[in-house]
């Protein structure tokens, strides 16, 4: 029992990725600040990368190019987040706040 707990395998990494995914999703749903929502979504993307890397590490030759896929995911995430930050700046200059629900109220 103790040995199996301290032998780190695929499912340990999958469990960690699941916990991070749930935390990130909770943050994305619950937060009202746009910057915090984007940070939470980045945590979700980290959990997805951990998923891919753990499959690539523990599965025999089934995913040889995991690094390339993960780099693609990371680059896409960073590009989207950079664009989102630029939009936030515009939104902040227009509204003086970054609260999604206040902005939605203002639109209505």
């Amino acid at each position: 029992m103790t040995e199996s707990v301290f032998e780190v395998g695929l499912l340990h990494y999958l469990l960690l990725a699941l916990i991070l995914f749930i935390i990130g999703m909770t943050g994305a749903v619950v937060s009202r600040n746009m910057v915090r929502i984007v940070m939470s979504l980045l945590i979700v993307s980290i959990s997805i990368v951990i998923n891919f890397l753990s499959f690539g590490c523990f599965c025999n030759d089934s995913l040889k190019y995991t690094n390339i896929m993960c780099i693609l995911i990371t680059v896409m995430t960073v590009l989207q987040v950079t664009g989102a930050f630029a939009l936030f700046l515009k939104v902040y200059h227009a509204n003086e706040y970054l609260d999604v629900e206040k902005i939605k109220d203002k639109e209505n």
Partner: peptide
């Protein structure tokens, strides 16, 4: 966790459905 944590599994069987 205790049973198959060190086994190697087929990628196609798990990864795509999880994602």
């Amino acid at each position: 966790l205790n049973e198959k944590s060190v086994d190697t599994v087929d990628f196609s069987g798990f990864s795509f459905s999880i994602h």
